[in-house]
Structure formats: C-alpha cells, structure tokens
C-alpha cells in the first residue's frame, strides 16, 4: 500500500482515532472537541465516530479538566485532555506539575498516570494564543514533553503518548497544522518517545531545534548548502526526557552547536541543552554554543511586533555564521 499523505493536524487526529479504536479506555475531553470538530479541526471526525461518551465537551474549567484526566488515569483509563491553547496551561499548573508529575513516584511506583495533555502553541496563520510554555515543564521530573514537527511524528508520537504509562504533554505547533503535508506510515505505528531525530546530516555545524524552528533550520541548511556549508539539523521532538546522546554524537562530528526554539531564549530548552553541551562536550566544541530564541519581552500581538519578536530563519543563519567564524 502506498504511504498516505496527511497534513499535520490530520495525522494527529489519525493517531487519536487509531488508539480510540484499539483501546476502549481511551477518550478525549476538551472545549469544542465535539460537533465543532475541535479548534482548527484538531478533533475532526472523532465525535461522529465515537460519540459523546468518548469525545467529551468540557466547561471552561482547565484545572478541573486536567485534574479529571489525572484522576481518570489513576483509575486505569487513558484520557486525552485537550487544553485548547498552551497559553492556558498556567491555569492548570498544579494539576500538571504537582499531581500528574508526582503520583507515580510519590506512591512508590504503585500508581501511574497514563494521560495525554494535548495543547496548541506557537505562531501561525491563526495568530491567537501563541505562547510557547513547553520548556517550563521540562524542569519537572515525571513529565514527558513532546513537540513533533512532521505529520509522521505527529501520528506516531500521539500513538506512543497515549500508550505511555506516564503523563505526556503533547505540544502541537499551530503553524504546522495545515501548512505541512507528509507521508505517514500505515498500520500500527508508534514513534518512540525519549528520542531526538537527525533530520538532515551535516558536518560543519549542528542545529538542534523544536517545532516550526526545525523547518526554519532546514531552510537555513538548504540555503547554506549552496555556499558549501554543511549543516546537521536535529529535531528535538521529545524535550523531556532529553536524548542528549544523539546531540552529543552530532557535536562530536560538527564541533559546533546552535539551539533554536520559538520560546524565550532566557531559561529555555536551549539553556538546558547548552548546559549539557558544556558539561559533556566541552572539549568537542570549537565555538561557544549559541541559542536562538525569542527576546525577553512579553509576547506582543500586533503583526509587525510579532514578526520582529519571533526568531526566524535569518536568526538561525546569522547564528550559524557566528559559530563558523569564531
């Protein structure tokens, strides 16, 4: 059978659909996930197939929604709870970082929380609620944090997240939703969590990126390829636990590292990866690690300000030029 080509959002829905067919304990809850088909089509078709018991509309009560997912998971169900946008995660922080994250460890391993919290982040054509708070959660032991950047991983990581016995925070980048179409494998396909993926091999510099920035990094690599610069691009599709081994192997090859994400540069995932690089790869590096991220202001909303605020391909290009000339 030829591979199917799906958009990013179709792949996410496909991942949920497959698991809901396979496992009756899997259900989805969130705002407008039913008849409307979810924000930006994020649960399109699921209500028609599975009905209101398994595709559950919720009030605007994020803390209770996430708490309900934690509790249902504790009773052995496999809830997918949708917080429409990552901007609202602060409203349910306790349930995520103090309940979901702690339960397994604090019960000496007797309990587990097999839930998925899916949420939309990042800038995109919609331009609403673009906050990228994913790095906050990598600070917390007990949470898995993923942010796929391709349709195949969107599907495969959704499947893996639903099957995972731990709470998984699933960040869906809104720009990718409809902008990207790609091959997805047929059948029972799970992308392992806890791995990062080399998207493009290169020898001169490594760019480790997340979400939309992976595509910007690939664009930068393409441009520089024409100038004879060979860029390796790593997709940090799983932010926690972090597969630094793959990044370290790349650094040993290229001796230069750039980390790029859409979230604030200060205290972000880039800081963690740069620190790992300093601890583990100091003598393999030929240049200081450079982070590309958003500047230290609250996220402004008018388009010109947003465009200025968002790190782009040009920022990755200039970071690469910097590390190549140091």
């Amino acid at each position: 059978m030829p591979p199917r080509r799906l958009t990013f959002v179709e792949a996410l829905v496909e991942g949920m659909r497959g698991e809901m067919r396979r496992d009756p304990d899997v259900f989805l809850m969130g705002q407008d996930v039913g008849v409307m088909g979810g924000a930006m089509g994020g649960s399109k078709g699921l209500y028609d197939e599975f009905g209101p018991r398994r595709v559950r509309e919720t009030p605007i009560s994020e803390s209770a929604m996430v708490g309900a997912a934690v509790g249902a998971a504790l009773t052995g169900k496999r809830p997918i709870v949708e917080v429409s946008f990552g901007e609202f995660l602060p409203t349910c922080m306790n349930q995520i970082v103090l309940q979901a994250a702690n339960l397994h460890y604090m019960t000496a391993g007797k309990a587990s929380v097999p839930m998925v919290l899916r949420t939309r982040v990042g800038d995109g054509p919609y331009r609403g609620h673009p906050q990228c708070f994913e790095a906050w959660f990598t600070h917390v032991p007990g949470l898995k944090v993923v942010m796929p950047s391709t349709p195949a991983d969107g599907l495969g990581m959704m499947v893996a997240a639903i099957r995972d016995p731990n709470p998984v925070l699933f960040f869906e980048h809104m720009y990718l939703y409809h902008a990207i179409r790609g091959d997805v494998p047929d059948g029972d396909h799970a992308t392992p969590l806890g791995k990062v993926f080399v998207r493009r091999e290169g020898t001169d510099v490594t760019v480790a990126a997340t979400g939309w920035m992976v595509h910007k990094a690939l664009a930068a690599a393409e441009l520089l390829g024409g100038e004879g610069v060979s860029v390796e691009v790593i997709d940090v599709a799983c932010l926690a636990p972090l597969d630094f081994d793959t990044i370290a192997a790349s650094i040993r090859k290229t001796s230069r590292l750039i980390v790029a994400h859409e979230a604030w540069k200060v205290g972000g995932l880039g800081a963690e990866i740069a620190a790992e690089a300093a601890e583990r790869c100091f003598f393999d590096l030929d240049a200081p690690v450079v982070r590309v991220g958003a500047p230290q202001t609250p996220l402004p909303l008018a388009k010109p300000l947003r465009d200025r605020f968002l790190p782009g391909t040009h920022d990755i290009l200039s970071a690469i030029r910097t590390v190549l000339t140091t």
């Binding site: 202001t297 402004p300 010109p304 300000l305 605020f309």
Partner: peptide, 11 residues
C-alpha cells in the same frame, strides 16, 4: 502599523 522597531526591550 505598530512600529516593529519598538519592541520595548527597555520597557
């Protein structure tokens, strides 16, 4: 349009 040069880093 809103002034892109005025990101307000010092504000």
């Amino acid at each position: 349009p809103a002034d892109e040069a005025d990101l307000g880093l010092d504000e």
